[in-house]
Simulated scan of single mutants.
Amino acid sequence: MDTHTGTDTGADPDALRRRWAATAAAAGADRDPAPYADRLLTAWAEPQRRYHTTAHLADVLARVDVLAPHAADPTAVELAAWFHDAVYRPDRSENEERSAALAERALPELGVDAARTAEVARLVRLTVTHDPAPGDTNGEALCDADLAVLAGRPEDPDHPGAYAAYTAAVRAEYAFVPDEAFRTGRAAVLRQLLALPRLFRTPYGAAHWEAPARRNLAAELDTLTS
C-alpha cells in the first residue's frame, strides 16, 4: 500500500488466489474454490479500506506461515486469516461477528467439515479481543499474526509493514472522525494494549515482536498525548 491514498499495491491477487486454492484443498473442499477467492478478494479491496486491505491479508498470511508450527490446526488458522476482516466497515462494531458468520455460510458450501468451520468462526471472533486462552495454540497463532504489524520498523515508513505506514493507514480509515475524537479513542486503544501482560502469546512472537511493538505503542501514545 502506498502512504496512504488507499491504493492497494502490496499484494498479488493471482498469488492470493493460488494460495486460497491450496488452503481450500488442504481443508477438504470439494467444490471449485475460485469463486470464493474472487468474492473474498473483492471484499478485501472495498474502497472504504485503507489498512484492512489485501496487503494486510497477505501480511497476516505471511505471519501465519512463520507461526504455523505453533498451531494445532494451521489450515484452520489460515482460513481464519482469510475471513477475519472479510466484512469491514470502520464505522461499525460488528465486523468480526459478520465476518465469522460469512465463514459459517461459505465454508460448508465449499465442502469444509463442520468441526473445522466452527473452529474458523471461533478464531475470527477471537480477533475482537486478541486474547486467546492459555493453550489455545490456534488462537495464539492468529492473534499474533494479526498484531505483528505493531512491531513494524518506525524508521522505514515506506515499508508496507512499517509502523508509521500502519498508523497513517488507520487514521485514513477513520478520516470521518474529527482529530480530537480520534486522538482520544486511539490513545485509549494504545493504553489498553500496553496494559496487557503480553501482546504476543507464541514463543516466536514473544521473542521477535513484543519489545519493538511496545516501543512503537509507547511512542505513538506519547505523540498523541503530548
Rank of each mutant, 00 (worst) to 15 (best):
D2K: 04
H4R: 11
T7W: 08
D12Q: 09
L16Y: 05
R19D: 12
A22R: 14
A25C: 11
A25M: 07
A27Q: 07
A27T: 11
D30K: 01
D32R: 05
D32W: 01
P35I: 05
A37I: 10
A37M: 05
D38V: 02
R39P: 00
W44A: 07
A45L: 10
R49Y: 03
T54C: 10
T54V: 09
A55V: 06
V60D: 01
L61N: 10
R63I: 05
P69A: 14
P69C: 14
H70I: 14
T75C: 12
V77Q: 11
L79D: 03
W82Q: 05
W82V: 04
H84S: 01
Y88P: 01
Y88W: 12
S93C: 07
E96M: 02
S99F: 01
A101S: 06
A103S: 02
A103N: 01
A106I: 13
V112M: 04
V112E: 05
A114R: 15
T117V: 03
E119A: 15
V120N: 12
V120E: 04
V124Q: 01
R125F: 01
T129H: 09
G135S: 04
D136W: 11
D136G: 02
N138W: 13
G139K: 04
E140G: 11
E140N: 07
D144H: 02
L150D: 02
A151K: 10
A151C: 07
A151S: 15
H159E: 15
Y163Q: 12
A164F: 06
A165G: 15
A165Y: 14
A165D: 01
Y166Q: 13
A169W: 05
Y174P: 06
Y174A: 01
F176G: 03
D179V: 15
D179I: 00
A181K: 14
P197N: 02
R201E: 11
P203R: 04
Y204K: 10
R215N: 15
R215M: 10
A218V: 09
